[in-house]
């Protein structure tokens, strides 16, 4: 039982948890900046980035994919900004146009490229392939101390661990600038903080997390990891630090319980087989957000769109 678990489930569960943590960290700030939609855009353009990288390099090396997807994310952000400025449409419309078009191009590229044989078929790109990230060299818990077995760990694990460390270091090191600039960008600028660079750096970090999570949950479901745990945590506390820690706890809980439910849930209900772990993780994160919305201590706040009109922030006339 133990050896089966280590071989088949341990690595996917750790990967899912790491992906959830890496996404939730920048997700907290995207949420507070009202840029959740941008997170959605980034997570979608990761796909064409990966496809183009595959076409250019001919390999499915995860580090090359990381670079390619990062470039695609930056490209899409620039393109969105360009469209907003030149066509003068609202950012939401520009994002919707850019990320659906780029995502669709990515799907077409996938179909046409003959990439389907390797790791990159459409289904995996969309839903991830968490269940296939097994540790074949493992014989039991003792393998955790066996260098030979450790060398056989899926490369996705190393990638995710590295990315999670980078994302965590970014958020910890820039905690103060990030929080001031997120709350009050104008004030942050008067403190001499490079607010535009910070905002761009946050997008780059979010893109890194999205790419790393791509292999675990697939392109479509990354948004659930990016936004749902922070949104649920926001409803449970009124302090930024608490919100971020809570979101990490929820992210891990979501990833692990989603994985287990996908594997055993159908059996418990009397059905044969299992369902997609990525799909179940996203579904669980939605359920947790729903529960938080129903029971969260701070779900009705003065000044939030839910409160009465009289409590809404005063909108000063254009000065």
């Amino acid at each position: 039982m133990g050896s089966d678990f280590v071989m088949l489930s341990l690595v996917p569960m750790v990967i899912a948890a790491l992906a959830a943590v890496a996404c939730a960290l920048p997700g907290n700030f995207l949420l507070l900046r009202r840029q959740s939609m941008l997170g959605d855009a980034i997570s979608h353009v990761v796909l064409p980035g990966i496809v183009v990288t595959f076409l250019v390099t001919g390999s499915a090396n995860p580090w090359a994919m990381l670079l390619g997807a990062g470039i695609a994310a930056l490209f899409s952000v620039l393109l969105i900004e360009l469209i907003v400025r030149s066509a003068r449409v609202e950012p939401g419309a520009a994002m919707g146009t850019v990320f659906t078009a780029m995502f669709a191009a990515g799907v077409l590229g996938l179909e046409r490229s003959g990439a389907s044989g390797v790791h990159l078929d459409v289904e995996h790109a969309l839903y991830g392939n968490l269940e296939s990230l097994i540790w074949l060299d493992a014989e039991g818990w003792s393998s955790l101390a066996d260098p030979e077995a450790l060398a056989g760990l899926p490369p996705e694990l190393t990638l995710l661990a590295a990315v999670t460390a980078v994302v965590g270091a970014f958020v910890m090191a820039l905690w103060r600038p990030l929080s001031v600039a997120t709350f009050d960008e104008g004030f942050a600028a008067t403190l001499g903080l490079p607010v535009r660079a910070l905002s761009l750096a946050l997008i780059v970090v979010a893109a890194m997390a999205c790419v790393a999570a791509f292999s675990a949950v697939g392109s479509i479901l990354v948004i659930a990891m990016l936004i749902c745990p922070p949104a649920a945590a926001r409803l449970m506390t009124n302090r930024l630090g608490h919100q971020v820690w809570l979101s990490l706890g929820l992210a891990i809980l979501t990833a692990l319980s989603g994985y287990v439910l996908a594997g055993y849930g159908p059996l418990w209900l009397g059905f044969a087989g299992s369902v997609s772990a990525a799909g179940m993780i996203a579904a669980v994160s939605g359920v947790i957000l729903g529960l938080a919305a129903l029971t969260g201590r701070h779900r009705r706040r003065t000044g939030s769109p839910l409160s009465t009109p009289a409590d809404r922030p005063y909108k000063a006339p254009n000065a």
Partner: peptide, 25 residues
């Protein structure tokens, strides 16, 4: 600098003390 009050999102998860401490950053 004291910005226009309407320019920020007061739904931000912070207490009065947290915001005032930003003046010390």
């Amino acid at each position: 600098y004291v910005p226009q009050r309407a320019g920020v999102d007061w739904d931000f998860p912070a207490r009065v003390l947290d915001v005032v401490l930003m003046g010390l950053y």
